[in-house]
């Protein structure tokens, strides 16, 4: 992948995703209570908050795996909530990376990546395979192309999961806690791939508690609790002067749990200075 440094002054930010007042409840339980945000092309947005706050539901609402009860979701201007929209075609434009990877267990890594290209995008077997190997190269998994998911470590599986989303050339990629099911020593390799993607200008919505990642690449962070946006701002804002007591408490706890990735963060900041 050729890296094009992102220069915000050179283009007028084009809105890829516009989430407007999304509500979702399961029976009595209201999970999302009017969430709104916008995402511009090449932007990385980090969503965080306590478990059960509705972050994962929000992502599943965005690609309509669980359609919201109320609200609008615009993908490049097209309202996904409008009747008659071809949701399958729309989902093909939204990549998704899952907490538990969800690789297709009967397919080798390369086929996991190519199956969508073949069946959804209609590429021939050869074309799909070439593109799949390209995507696996981007996540440094070329050597593992012929392995089944069960033969891969969690970190490797997640990198294949990212390649699977990437290969579809989506308008944006949703990451649903991509590292929280991983052993600590495997988190780094996945975060590194995500950092590379972010710096290459991939449009991303990332649900994560990895504050090092957020600080390195997020243009905005959104703190959600009990289905509502409590506070939003830059990473700088959250680390220097968070307003809400809830955010402060949460960040303190996160810091205790996830403090070990400061090195990754430092490295990536040094990269930028060079």
């Amino acid at each position: 992948m050729t890296e094009i440094p992102y220069d915000p002054t050179k283009e007028i930010a084009e809105t890829v995703l516009n989430v407007v007042d999304v509500w979702k409840s399961y029976d009595e339980l209201e999970v999302l209570k009017g969430i709104s945000f916008e995402l511009a092309r090449r932007e990385v947005k980090v969503i965080f908050g306590p478990s059960g706050s509705g972050k994962s539901t929000l992502l599943r609402c965005i690609n309509m795996l669980t359609p919201p009860d109320k609200g609008e979701i615009y993908l490049s201007g097209q309202n996904l909530m409008a009747p008659g929209v071809d949701l399958n075609a729309m989902r093909a434009k939204i990549g998704m990376v899952f907490q538990h990877f969800n690789l297709f267990s009967h397919l080798k890594a390369a086929d996991n990546v190519s199956v969508g290209l073949r069946r959804v995008k209609g590429f021939t077997k050869e074309e799909a395979r070439a593109k799949a190997l390209d995507a696996l190269h981007q996540v440094k998994m070329t050597d593992w192309a012929e392995h089944y998911p069960a033969q891969l470590s969690g970190g490797q599986q997640q990198r294949v999961g990212i390649a699977r989303a990437l290969a579809m050339k989506p308008d944006l990629i949703l990451f649903d806690e991509p590292t929280s099911a991983l052993d600590p020593e495997l988190i780094g390799e996945v975060l590194q791939v995500m950092l590379d993607l972010a710096k290459a200008g991939t449009t991303m919505v990332v649900v994560t508690h990895e504050m090092g990642f957020a600080r390195a690449v997020a243009s905005e962070m959104i703190f959600i609790d009990q289905g509502v946006v409590i506070e939003r701002g830059t990473a700088e804002h959250f680390f220097v002067s968070p307003e809400s007591e809830r955010v402060k408490n949460f960040l303190r706890q996160i810091n205790i749990l996830y403090g070990h990735h400061e090195e990754l963060l430092k490295e990536s900041n040094e990269d930028e200075k060079l």
């Binding site: 690609n63 795996l65 399958n88 075609a89 729309m90 989902r91 093909a92 434009k93 939204i94 990549g95 998704m96 899952f98 538990h100 969800n102 690789l103 297709f104 267990s105 199956v115 969508g116 069946r119 959804v120 699977r164 579809m168």
Partner: peptide
Amino acid sequence: QPGQTAAARALGMNGFQSFRHI
């Protein structure tokens, strides 16, 4: 596992494709 279908649908497969191929 339900995640298999979720991943297939998220790729843009329709219900039949996700059954047939996954």
